[in-house]
C-alpha cells in the first residue's frame, strides 16, 4: 500500500491538474460564445449574396456561359483540397475526425487517378500529414479563433485564380461544420466548380424584372468570386467555433475525471491514516500491558 506521503502528493497533483483543466474549460466556453456570435453575424451576408444570385437567375437570359469560375470539367485531373484543423490540441477528437475525413477523401481521389493539391490550415493537420508522409502544397498556421475575411481571402484567392486558368479542376474544403451548439461534424464541401441550380424555380421572390446595372454579366462576374470567398470564410468561422466547443467538452471531461480521482485518493489516504493510528494505539496498549 502506498504511504500517506505518496498519496498526499498524488492528491495535490491531481487537484492542480483539475485547476488547469477547469480554467481551460472556462476559457473555451467564453471563446465558444464569441465564435458562435460570429457565425450568426456572418449569416446575413452569405444569405444576401445567395439571394442576389437567385434574383439574377430569375432575370433569366442564360447566364451560365463565359465565366471562368463556372467552368465545368467532365473528368477532373487535379483537385485542390483545403483542410481546416486547429493549431492546438487538447480538444478531443476535433482534429482527428477532420483529418480522417480528409485522408479518406484524398486517398479515394488519388485512387481515382486525380492528383490532389493539399492546403493545410493548423499545426495539428500539418504534423499529421508529415507523420503520414503525405504531401501538401501549402501550410498555414496563422489562423486563430478569430479568422478574418481578409485572411480567408488571401488563402483562397490564388487557388481560385489557378482554377480560372485551368490549372486545377476542382476545389474542396474539409472542415468541422457547426450545426448547432450541441452538434458539429466534419464535412467535405465542394466549392468549385460552382453548380448553378438553373432549375431553381423560386418564383416567390421574382417580383418583376430587376434593373441590372451595369450588366448582368458584370454583376455575376463579381458576385461569384465574392460568394466563394464568403463560403470559405464561413467554413473557417464554423471550424473555429467547433474547435472551441470540442475543447470545452474535452476539458469538462478531464475536470470530471480529476474530481473522481481526487475523491478516490482522498478516501485511500484517510484509510491509510486510520490504519496507522489504529496500529499505533495497539502498540501503546501492548506496551502498557507488558508493564503490568
Amino acid at each position: 500500500m502506498a504511504t500517506s506521503r505518496e498519496l498526499k502528493n498524488k492528491i495535490r497533483s491531481v487537484n492542480n491538474t483539475k485547476k488547469i483543466t477547469r480554467t481551460m474549460e472556462m476559457i473555451s466556453t467564453a471563446k465558444a460564445v464569441v465564435c458562435q456570435r460570429r457565425i450568426e453575424a456572418t449569416q446575413p451576408y452569405g444569405d444576401k449574396l445567395a439571394e442576389i444570385r437567385r434574383d439574377l437567375g430569375s432575370c433569366g437570359d442564360g447566364l451560365a456561359g463565359g465565366f471562368p469560375l463556372l467552368r465545368q470539367v467532365e473528368s477532373p485531373s487535379r483537385e485542390a483540397v483545403f483542410i481546416v484543423t486547429a493549431n492546438r490540441g487538447l480538444c478531443g477528437g476535433y482534429n482527428a475526425n477532420t483529418l480522417k475525413v480528409a485522408e479518406n477523401y484524398i486517398r479515394k481521389r488519388n485512387a481515382d487517378g486525380v492528383q490532389t493539391d493539399v492546403y493545410i490550415l493548423g499545426k495539428k493537420g500539418i504534423s499529421r500529414f508529415k507523420y503520414l508522409g503525405m504531401e501538401s502544397v501549402e501550410q498555414y498556421i496563422h489562423f486563430d479563433d478569430r479568422p478574418t475575411f481578409e485572411e480567408a481571402e488571401e488563402v483562397i484567392s490564388p487557388v481560385m485564380e489557378s482554377f480560372e486558368k485551368g490549372e486545377v479542376d476542382a476545389l474542396s474544403v474539409v472542415f468541422t461544420h457547426y450545426i448547432n451548439a450541441a452538434k458539429q461534424e466534419p464535412v467535405l464541401r465542394k466549392l468549385l466548380p460552382i453548380t448553378v441550380d438553373q432549375a431553381d424555380g423560386d418564383s416567390s421572390r421574382s417580383v418583376g424584372e430587376f434593373i441590372l446595372e451595369p450588366s448582368p454579366e458584370l454583376i455575376l462576374g463579381r458576385l461569384l468570386p465574392l460568394s466563394l470567398k464568403m463560403q470559405f470564410f464561413q467554413a473557417l468561422v464554423e471550424a473555429a467555433a467547433s474547435e472551441q466547443i470540442a475543447r470545452r467538452m474535452a476539458m469538462k471531461n478531464a475536470t470530471d475525471n480529476a474530481e473522481e480521482m481526487a475523491t478516490k485518493y482522498t478516501q485511500l489516504y484517510n484509510r491509510t491514516r486510520q490504519a496507522a493510528i489504529t496500529q499505533e494505539i495497539l502498540e501503546v496498549i501492548g506496551g502498557a500491558e507488558v508493564l503490568n
Partner: peptide, 19 residues
Amino acid sequence: HALDGRLGILPGHAPLITA
C-alpha cells in the same frame, strides 16, 4: 457609388441590382 457613377435611391425606386 456604382461602377459608372453615383446612384441615388429614394423611396419607391424600381427593383435594382447593381455592382
